[in-house]
Design a protein around this nucleic acid. Structure first.
Length: 273
DNA sequence: CACTAAACCTGGGAGC
DNA sequence: TGCTCCCAGGTTTAGT
């Protein structure tokens, strides 16, 4: 389930393969996955455009094409974007095939939740999905004060606040649980109950866990792969996510599982207060 | 405003 | 082996 570190890892691996290449043809095999401007044909619109740059905003990958067009890609849970240097046979989960002047880019998605939107560059940041996003947690402009001010407006649990993309962009279930463990904060604490010292710990934990996730090439708990089809390594560093009932790597106690904000949440009852 | 639930989907695992 | 059931979770939308 690609969160910020996974999308960033896709962006980095993809950049090395496709920047400067031209989209010569597009085969949309499952139309709901490829959304374009009103009444415009996705394939026709994308054809004969050069891939000029790759950006990321939260969990969204932005592919900027020549002539002012941008593809906004969200992978949701099982989306993948993989580059093949040679012609490659699509499978039943391959929804869009981009044939480049050299190689092919395949978008596949088992669960069919992900979407590729094709919009004008000017419209991209006004698009409903991007406009509401909170700050980028790894930008220099993201400070602990900013986090504190945004959390102060929330009346939910701290876990729900971290998953809220309008508070901070890019955190999902994995990194929310990991950041809260590192900060020693129980996931179902009310946001208003956090002391300033705890928000400082949380701020540091968020920045560290996301940066380490990127360095490890993301977390391949199940489906995630980068643009070369390679797994990440951060699953080996997970302290709580997916480890319910197992020993806490820090104190040796048993990790607990609860539902918070409708999501499975794993934490250490001893290390997190 | 904030919460919950449903909807969107399929594969994998558990239990029988 | 094969069936059923439940679970995984990002986001939007509808309802309370």
């Amino acid at each position: 389930m690609p969160e910020l570190p996974e999308v960033e890892s896709i962006r980095l691996s993809l950049a090395a393969r496709i920047l400067g290449k031209t989209i010569e043809d597009v085969e949309v095999r499952w139309p709901p996955a490829a959304v374009s401007l009103a009444d415009e044909d996705f394939s026709a619109l994308a054809r004969n455009r050069t891939i000029e740059s790759l950006d990321r905003r939260g969990k969204y990958l932005l592919m900027n094409l020549s002539h002012g067009l941008t593809m906004i890609i969200h992978f949701r849970m099982t989306g993948r974007l993989i580059y093949y240097p040679e012609q490659h046979e699509p499978n039943k989960h391959t929804h869009v095939v981009f044939r480049l002047d050299q190689g092919e880019l395949h978008y596949s998605d088992i669960r069919k939740f992900g979407r590729i939107q094709l919009v004008s560059f000017q419209m991209a940041f006004k698009a409903a999905c991007l406009a509401k996003l909170g700050p980028e947690p790894l930008d220099e402009s993201f400070t602990f004060d900013q986090l504190g001010m945004r959390l102060a407006r929330k009346k939910s649990t701290i876990k729900a606040a971290l998953l809220d993309q309008t508070v901070v962009a890019g955190i999902g279930n994995i990194y929310a649980d990991e950041a809260l463990f590192r900060a020693g904060i129980l996931p179902d604490r009310n946001t208003a109950s956090l002391k300033v010292s705890e928000i400082i710990l949380l701020y540091d934990a968020i920045c560290e866990v996301l940066q380490e996730g990127i360095t490890a090439g993301g977390t391949s708990f199940r489906d995630y792969r980068d643009a070369d089809g390679k797994k990440g390594a951060f699953q080996e560093n997970l302290m709580v996510y997916g480890r319910s009932g197992q020993e806490c790597k820090y104190c040796g106690g048993q990790l607990a599982k609860i539902k918070v904000a409708g999501r499975t949440t794993v934490y250490c009852p001893n290390c997190q207060k």
